[in-house]
Amino acid sequence: MDTSTRSRAGPFPVGDRHSGSPLRVIVLAGGKAGTDPLAQAFGMSHRCLVPLGGRPLVAHVLQTAAIHPAVESLAVSVEREAFDGLFDVLSQLPGRGIVKLVEARENLVDSVLAAAHDWDGPLLITTADHALLSAASIDAMIAALEKAQVAVAMAPREAVLATNPGGAPSFHEFAEAAYAACNLYAVTDPEALRAAEVFRGGGRFAGNAWRVLRAFGLADLILLRFRAITLAGAMQRVSRRLGLRIVPVILDDGSQAIDVDDAQTHAAAEGLLRTAAADIVVPAHAGAASRL
């Protein structure tokens, strides 16, 4: 049985009032100051502060989340030395007062758990360099939680390359297709975060053979290595091992797999933002239309 959820995710936040449970969005923005090459190229301490389209990377993510009708709370996980650089970003956000800064911990899992503290509803987890995050992607992740405890966003290789032909992200090969991770995860509540223990120690889980071996066993590792299992089938096996229902959410918008982490992805994201802005048409007086 196919347990994936498919959505066409557009480039700008849209949507009607959400009737489900309020959502907290956790934005992972941490990184040791002065060590990120992209941040260094722009003279910034942290990648989350790198300018893109006239605003810091993290501002794009927070803007999309802050105006989404389902989002009630935002938590940014980052080192304390970056707090001052983020205050100006937060002051410009709509829905002021729903954002909190949480000091990043030593590893990814503990950072997520700290950012989830005092929240007992659904969580959406992403990264500060996911500047092209769309409201449609948020909608798709929320919808997936109606039938699962954990949702993981993926984009097909052809969609990613159509959006960013010069990029070379890591693709995970399955029996039916290859997918790129979108650094976008949703869980029904903090209790479901126990699945994140698999990620303890950092790194890209799907690309780490030993981590797969430890978590899911040799048989699953062999199936993945020889591309003998579908993405949905792999998630079903993971679900059984962890005791949680985990589903992939397939996003047909390849831009959702773009992490702005080097010069090439920065240029690609900036171009996509310019194109999207040029395509917004607003009504003008006398029935005419003008472009922003």
Results as ranks from 00 to 15, higher is better:
140 A>V: 04
141 M>E: 12
141 M>I: 08
141 M>Q: 15
142 I>H: 02
144 A>F: 06
144 A>Q: 06
144 A>N: 07
144 A>R: 05
144 A>S: 15
146 E>F: 08
146 E>G: 14
147 K>V: 12
147 K>G: 13
149 Q>K: 05
149 Q>C: 09
150 V>K: 01
150 V>P: 05
151 A>Q: 02
152 V>L: 13
152 V>Y: 04
152 V>W: 09
152 V>C: 10
153 A>V: 06
154 M>E: 11
154 M>L: 15
156 P>R: 00
157 R>Y: 05
158 E>S: 03
159 A>T: 10
160 V>L: 06
160 V>Y: 04
161 L>T: 10
162 A>F: 06
163 T>Y: 02
163 T>A: 12
165 P>K: 03
165 P>F: 12
165 P>S: 05
165 P>Y: 02
169 P>R: 04
169 P>H: 02
169 P>D: 13
170 S>L: 10
170 S>I: 15
171 F>N: 07
171 F>C: 09
173 E>S: 08
174 F>D: 03
174 F>E: 03
174 F>I: 10
174 F>V: 08
177 A>W: 00
177 A>C: 10
178 A>T: 14
179 Y>T: 06
180 A>R: 00
180 A>K: 00
180 A>I: 07
180 A>C: 12
181 A>S: 14
181 A>M: 05
181 A>F: 05
182 C>T: 04
182 C>A: 13
183 N>V: 01
185 Y>V: 15
186 A>P: 07
187 V>Q: 02
190 P>K: 06
191 E>K: 11
191 E>G: 10
192 A>F: 00
193 L>F: 05
194 R>C: 12
194 R>T: 11
194 R>N: 11
195 A>N: 08
195 A>P: 04
196 A>G: 15
196 A>D: 11
198 V>T: 09
199 F>G: 00
199 F>Q: 02
200 R>C: 10
202 G>N: 04
202 G>D: 02
203 G>E: 09
204 R>L: 14
204 R>A: 15
204 R>S: 11
205 F>G: 00
206 A>P: 03
209 A>V: 15
210 W>V: 14
210 W>E: 11
210 W>M: 09
212 V>D: 04
213 L>P: 07
214 R>W: 11
215 A>R: 00
215 A>D: 12
215 A>I: 08
217 G>A: 11
218 L>T: 15
